[in-house]
């Protein structure tokens, strides 16, 4: 809303992504020093084991962390603006549960007699299958929500439909779990822990395209989101086409959250926490400021969470979804208490 969209806070926070990125790729089961990293990345050594670890495991994982952070936080910001509720996140539309239903159907399919034995037998194809199943699940739920948004002119109704779809898919997943084999169940549960690893560069390219597309749509919605701060009546009187805004918001949020959930599984709380922190940092609800800030803060948050997840040198990786919730929940509480003052 102000003349300068880029402020010092945004630049400062953006710059911290670089050291955090290097810390993230240096820490792990075998610690790699920064000088080794620089030597490997810029010195052209390609054959060493360090290069393999960096290029094939840690760098893609860190890149995915950044993309996930950007995507989920923007998606959360969009939903909070649409529902005028700071507790809304990407999950309110039932996109997460749609994705989990897709994955559940694939990984637990033999249990409910759909024929595919188990994804683990399918090797590389298995990863793609999970991604496709999750994206399809998220996409179907998103399509239903868009249909409802088109028919019903009421955000509360939309929220309820999202929650009901979530409950519906959760019960279907429950039935599938009940009838499936313990091994398959374990596979599914592993997916629900979320994971930033195991994603190859071509998948990162696809994820990046989705994030860019979602981000561009979100950029065009900043003005509308600001208007919605005054409520729907005022927003309309100042020229907002509410219907168009809602459809574009849902589309953008679904593309962002759906693609992330498809590739990485459910990752909670980033979408709620990052916009909250952005509001505290910006001391404003102007979405021209909040959108880039949320994206940067989301990326920072995910890099930190990823670093924590593999900080132990025993090679154990703590599930990313547990860490984001563990850190995100207190942050939301603190941000809320600060915001009340």
């Amino acid at each position: 809303m102000n003349k300068k969209y880029i402020d010092i806070k945004l630049i400062g926070l953006s710059l911290t992504i670089i050291p955090l990125f290097f810390i993230d790729i240096s820490i792990g089961s075998s610690n790699i020093s920064i000088s080794e990293i620089i030597q490997t990345l810029f010195g052209g050594e390609e054959e060493s084991s360090i290069a393999t670890i960096l290029w094939l495991i840690r760098i893609p994982k860190a890149l995915v962390a950044i993309l996930v952070g950007i995507a989920l936080s923007i998606s959360g910001l969009l939903m909070q603006a649409l529902f005028r509720n700071p507790m809304a996140g990407p999950s309110v539309l039932g996109i997460n549960s749609g994705a989990s239903l897709g994955v559940a159907l694939v990984s637990l399919s033999s249990g409910i007699g759909l024929g595919i034995n188990s994804i683990s037998y399918l090797e590389n194809f298995g990863i793609w299958l999970t991604v496709i199943a999750a994206s399809a699940g998220a996409g179907i739920v998103m399509f239903i929500i868009l249909l409802v948004a088109h028919k019903v002119n009421d955000n509360v109704a939309l929220l309820i439909v999202g929650m009901m779809l979530g409950a519906l898919t959760a019960s279907l997943v429950g039935i599938a779990q009940y009838f499936s084999h313990p091994d398959q169940l374990q596979e599914y549960i592993l997916w629900t822990f979320g994971s930033l690893g195991g994603i190859v560069y071509e998948q990162i390219t696809i994820l990046t395209l989705f994030v860019i597309l979602g981000f561009i749509i979100a950029l065009t919605l900043c003005r509308s989101m600001n208007l919605m701060l005054l409520g729907e009546q005022y927003a309309k009187s100042m020229g907002l086409s509410v219907q168009k805004y809602r459809i574009l918001s849902i589309l953008s949020a679904s593309l962002l959250a759906g693609s992330v959930t498809g590739f990485c599984g459910p990752i909670g709380f980033v979408g709620i926490a990052a916009p909250h922190i952005a509001r505290v940092v910006a001391k404003s609800s102007d979405h021209f400021k909040l959108l880039p800030l949320s994206a940067v803060i989301g990326a920072i948050g995910m890099l930190i969470c990823d670093t924590i997840s593999h900080i132990s040198d025993s090679g154990v990786v703590i599930p990313i979804n547990s860490i984001t919730s563990l850190i995100g929940a207190p942050i939301v509480i603190i941000a809320m208490l600060k915001g009340r003052k």
Binding site: R223, N226, G231, M238, F288
Partner: peptide, 27 residues
């Protein structure tokens, strides 16, 4: 007027100019 979030008085009045700006919202 139920305003959600932190908006200054000036930012609110400035919104009256939104019908005149392009989609990007450049004032």
């Amino acid at each position: 007027t139920s305003i959600v979030g932190k908006l200054t008085v000036f930012e609110t009045v400035l919104m009256g100019r939104y019908p005149y700006v392009n989609w990007w919202g450049k004032l």
